[in-house]
């Protein structure tokens, strides 16, 4: 369960202060598939970065499973991101010198798994997204859709509590986008909590809840 209360995020540029999030109240229950929608500049990615602990809000409260994240040290946040969260970025964010298998196994390895155990889990995760035969390929040897599927494998290999996806289909063609979204759908059916930022209406049907943002405020939330 994620609870957000009166979340504010501002960016300062000299004397200028731009408020991107203007007091967001939001909750996400376990097992939900939430799509955060909004036009460009609405603040949807910024919101995702705050609740996924990649960034520090200016003010407000974020509680994850009842735990106030303001009290967390950097190290605790790092451990939280490592074990509780999974991330899928718009540009895949794979490490170019690591193979598909290594990209997926690395966070598992960081969690203390042995090489064999990490590799085994990574293989399972890659097979789940249909990349069982591309284990030893470097990202540069994969198509955009395949790279995004590796990114999803990396995000789910350690069975995170929440999967965050920031415009996961933005760089993909229609076919690859459909594949990625069908993977998300399957993950959700298996009970995975997903919070996804998107601006593509086509994929809203996959989400069970659509939160709309405009000018740093939630303008529509069925809850």
């Amino acid at each position: 369960m994620i609870e957000v209360k009166n979340l504010v995020k501002s960016f300062k540029d000299g004397p200028l202060e731009t408020r991107v999030l203007k007091g967001i109240d939001f909750t996400a229950a376990t097992g939900e598939f939430i799509a955060i929608m909004g036009r460009s500049g609405a603040g949807k990615s910024t919101l995702l970065y705050q609740i996924s602990l990649l960034d520090e809000p200016t003010s407000g409260e974020i509680r994850i499973n009842g735990r106030d994240t303001r009290a967390m040290s950097e190290r605790e946040k790092m451990l939280f991101r490592l074990s509780e969260f999974g991330y899928v970025f718009q540009d895949y964010a794979l490490l170019p010198e690591l193979t598909a298998l290594e990209n997926v196994a690395l966070p598992l390895y960081m969690q203390g798994a042995s090489r064999a155990a990490a590799d085994a889990k990574a293989v399972t995760a890659l097979e789940r997204v249909g990349l069982g035969k591309r284990l030893d390929n470097l990202p540069s040897q994969l198509s955009g859709g395949e790279q995004q599927r590796v990114s999803i494998s990396r995000a789910i290999a350690h069975t995170p509590n929440v999967l965050f996806a920031d415009e996961p289909t933005a760089n993909l063609d229609t076919e690859s986008s459909a594949t990625v979204m069908s993977i998300f759908k399957k993950l959700h059916e298996d009970g995975q909590t997903i919070i996804m930022v998107t601006h593509e209406d086509d994929f809203l049907r996959f989400a069970e809840r659509v939160v709309k943002l405009d000018d740093g405020k939630i303008v529509s939330d069925p809850r």
């Binding site: 190290r75 991101r81 991330y87 690395l106 966070p107 960081m110």
Partner: peptide, 11 residues
């Protein structure tokens, strides 16, 4: 990539 590593939880 260093940011990504940190983002996915690599210390």
């Amino acid at each position: 990539f260093i940011g990504i590593l940190k983002g996915i939880g690599i210390s």
